[in-house]
Design a protein around this nucleic acid. Structure first.
Length: 485
RNA sequence: GGCUCGUUGGUGAAGUGGCUUAACACAGCGCCCUUUCACGGCGUCAUUCACGGGUUCGAAUCCCGUACGAGUCACCA
């Protein structure tokens, strides 16, 4: 049994989008499901016009953040280098293989002009008939070809496809797919500038790198027969294909960078955790055998199975990701959580409060780190608020009750020295007893008075403990004055 | 237009001929818990699997057709 080898082959053209990341994930999982599987990173940078500065680093960083560590790649090397397509091209391998294919009868030289073919194509499409180029150069003699090339004429190398019969292949996800050879285009393999086309370079690279499983989007489903014909012409072993359904933005559109749809880094910037994103997208288009939904990468390696990849597109649902992210956040131990949210707390709260205590009140309430700033705004800025906030039917409070409760609380708290949360709890609960009212009739107004907000992370006692005695009393006084006015 | 693929609830989906009067999860709704919001708990949410035929004692599951959707048909990747 040969080792499983998969490859992630992105073009460094900007941010990493979700569909791309999911493909990388599946490629990683297919390899890592096996003990000795190898996951390779290959950079496809032959389209110089589309290159974006720094994009390669984004790819490295994203894989690192997600834990999808590759075993071979431009940055770490390996026995199948180079792992950068432009460098491979410089060595002339594609041209070499293209000519080899001509010798083997799998391709031919073509001198036809691009404009000429294009106009024929336009004509056909105007008439509404399907177009397939029937290349007259196929009949050129070897002598003529040599002479024209020697004369400096531009040429391309085109694949030869026998229009008789059918070609089929077995896809791990979609099953057996068969197409009529007559519908297959004799695609260009080597361009007139000597560069390989993507399709050709892919086949050559995958073969040279011993890729055993090709995992990619299902947009390649219909061109796969052409790839296979190439492998056959060379006499090479074909890889196992795993075509994945698309990740959709809505019913009709794929998630794409063009539409400004969220990229991995956008999500991270908003406060989603890489592990949660990975966990969520694993479930977009694949389902495990059990009901388990929360998976570590290691658990995913064990549970993953290409046979359970779906065939229809899956809509990316940010709501479910949000829930899952919240699960990850809530399941963290408090120290790790504190460390994680510290930058967000520091950003939201400049005053000198205990960040550990703030982290504690946030812990079970935050789904996305980006929400933190707004949740904590009342610490630095005591907002203007309406006395209507004191009206709460369920708590049985209103401004009148609030005024009484606040005055009593203010007096009691003024005499309280031990400002620990535990003691504040005891003191205020005793006060509830003494006053003979419901918990909410005291604590609800106090919380509003301390924060000026209808919704806050944490209740009256927790917030009072964080604010400290001086600030708490100040806010109570201000609220009492507002109620008496 | 040709070819390829797809179609289970608002979303992700389980389901591969009887255990399904369709699991689980998110969202929604309702209730409970509760010092707000959240968290947590409970309940509810497809009599029906795009539609129409057929096979079968029996179909979401097999076959055929129709509709709709997506992908692909570049000297782009």
């Amino acid at each position: 049994m040969t080792k499983v080898r998969t490859r992630f082959a992105p073009s460094p053209t900007g941010y990493m989008h979700i569909g791309n990341l999911r493909t990388a994930l599946y490629e990683y999982l297919v390899a890592k499901k096996e003990e000795d599987g190898v996951f390779i990173l290959r950079i496809e940078d032959t389209d110089q016009g589309r290159l974006v500065e720094g994009a390669t680093d984004i790819i490295y960083n994203t894989l690192k953040q997600c834990g999808l560590q590759h075993d071979e790649g431009p940055d770490i090397g390996g026995n199948y280098g180079s792992y950068v397509q432009s460098e491979r091209m410089a060595s002339g391998i594609y041209k070499e293989y293209a000519w080899k294919l001509v010798e083997l009868g799998g391709a031919h030289v073509c001198f036809c002009s691009e404009e000429d073919i294009e106009s024929q194509r336009q004509l056909a499409s105007a008439k509404g008939i399907s177009f397939k180029y029937d290349d007259p150069c196929k009949n050129l003699s070897k002598e003529e070809i040599d002479a024209r090339i020697a004369a400096g004429e531009k040429y391309v190398i085109r694949q030869n496809i026998n229009p008789e019969g059918t070609t089929s292949f077995d896809d791990e996800v979609y099953g057996t797919i068969t197409v009529e050879n007559s519908t297959l285009d004799e695609q260009i393999l080597l361009k007139s500038d000597g560069f390989p086309t993507y399709n050709f370079a892919n086949v050559i690279d995958d073969h040279m790198m011993d890729i055993t499983h090709v995992v990619r989007g299902n947009e390649y489903l219909s061109s796969t027969p052409k790839y296979n014909l190439l492998y056959d012409a060379f006499g090479w072993r074909k890889p196992i294909y795993v075509h994945c359904p698309p990740v959709m933005k809505d019913e009709h559109h794929k998630l794409s960078k063009r539409n400004g749809d969220a990229s991995f880094q956008d999500l991270v910037a908003k406060g989603y955790l890489p592990q949660a994103i990975i966990n969520y997208i694993a479930l977009l288009g694949w389902s495990p055998e059990t009901d388990q939904e929360i998976y570590t990468l290691d658990e995913l390696k064990k549970a993953f199975n290409v046979k359970r990849i779906n065939t229809s597109g899956a809509i990316f649902d940010i709501e479910k990701l949000k829930w899952m992210n919240g699960m990850y956040l809530r399941n963290m131990d408090i120290d790790a959580y504190h460390e994680l949210v510290l930058p967000y707390i520091k950003e939201a709260v400049k005053s000198d409060y205990d960040t550990k205590q703030i982290a504690e009140i946030l812990h079970q309430r935050v789904s996305i780190l980006g929400e933190i700033n707004e949740m904590l705004d009342f610490f630095d800025t005591y907002p203007e608020y309406s006395n209507d906030l004191y009206i709460n039917k369920k708590m049985k409070t209103n401004p009148e009750i609030a005024l009484t409760s606040l005055k009593a609380a203010r007096e009691t708290l003024a005499n309280t020295e031990d400002w620990s949360q535990a003691n504040l709890h005891d003191v205020l609960m005793n006060l509830v007893q003494t006053l003979g009212i419901k918990n909410g009739q005291l604590l609800f107004p106090v919380r509003i008075a301390l924060t000026g907000k209808a919704f806050t992370p944490g209740g009256a006692i927790e917030i009072a403990a964080i604010l400290g005695k001086e600030e708490s009393l100040k806010r109570l006084d201000s609220s009492i004055a507002q109620l008496e006015a």
